[in-house]
């Protein structure tokens, strides 16, 4: 009796298994999974640029104009260079903005907040030499805003930088005018005159990426 039952069961199991194999050959669905975290980061590099030749120099840790030199003809203090900050955004957000805020640029007595010109540009690679080849150093700038340091609190959106990246120029105001005698720097800026007390002026710039 038992052996007949086992035989019958075995036949059933074998038959069932064959049926099962037949069903599995039609379609199998498996999920593939991964998770990407929101990623937001800034890369900032600063370089000094020779004010006369425009040649890029060493990399700096700060926007450091060094010791200004008095120009007796112009009656103003000037540095021998200006500074460039490149701001690279690493973000997988659909939208983001980069903001620029500043603390007072002061020696504790006076400040240079209206003596520094801040120029925001979109920089992108371009065939500037028009030779069909884009070298690493071939870029073009599109000016976005030019403001005094005092008034340089600004937010720049992802769309404004489409196809490029944010570059910010910092220079001491020269008071330069165009051929018609009109001021070419922001209206609220002026050169550093001897009215400013001597000393070490220090300020702080904060660049913030907001998703």
């Amino acid at each position: 009796m038992l052996s007949r039952f086992l035989k019958a069961t075995g036949v059933f199991l074998i038959t069932f298994g064959m049926l099962g194999l037949a069903f599995a050959g039609d379609s199998v669905q498996k999920y593939i999974k991964a998770h990407i975290e929101p990623q937001d980061g800034l890369n900032v590099s600063i370089h000094k640029v020779d004010a006369n030749t425009g040649i890029w120099g060493e990399e700096l840790q700060d926007i450091d104009f060094g010791t200004l030199t008095y120009d007796p003809d112009l009656g103003i203090f000037l540095p021998d260079h200006y500074c460039v900050m490149d701001v690279g955004v690493l973000s997988n957000e659909a939208n983001w903005s980069v903001s620029h805020t500043v603390d007072s640029f002061t020696n504790g007595t006076d400040d240079l907040n209206k003596n520094v010109v801040v120029t925001f540009v979109k920089t992108e690679k371009a065939d500037v030499n028009n030779d069909g080849i884009i070298e690493d150093d071939e870029t073009k700038d599109t000016k976005l805003y030019q403001l005094s340091y005092a008034n340089s609190v600004k937010s720049i959106s992802k769309s404004e930088l489409s196809g490029g990246w944010l570059r910010i120029y910092y220079g001491i105001a020269t008071g330069e005018v165009d051929q018609n005698g009109n001021k070419i720097e922001p209206a609220d800026t002026s050169p550093v005159t001897t009215d400013k007390s001597s000393g070490d002026y220090i300020g702080k710039i904060t660049i913030t990426l907001t998703p």
């Binding site: 990623q39 980061g41 600063i46 001597s198």
Partner: peptide, 30 residues
């Protein structure tokens, strides 16, 4: 990351969303 203007960006602070940079100048006594 090699971007324009010969600037080499070395990523050292992924994940930070804020960077502070000093601004300095010295006006000599005269």
């Amino acid at each position: 990351f090699l971007l324009g203007g010969g600037v080499i960006f070395v990523t050292s602070s992924f994940g930070e969303d804020s960077v502070n940079v000093g601004i300095k100048a010295t006006v000599p006594e005269s």
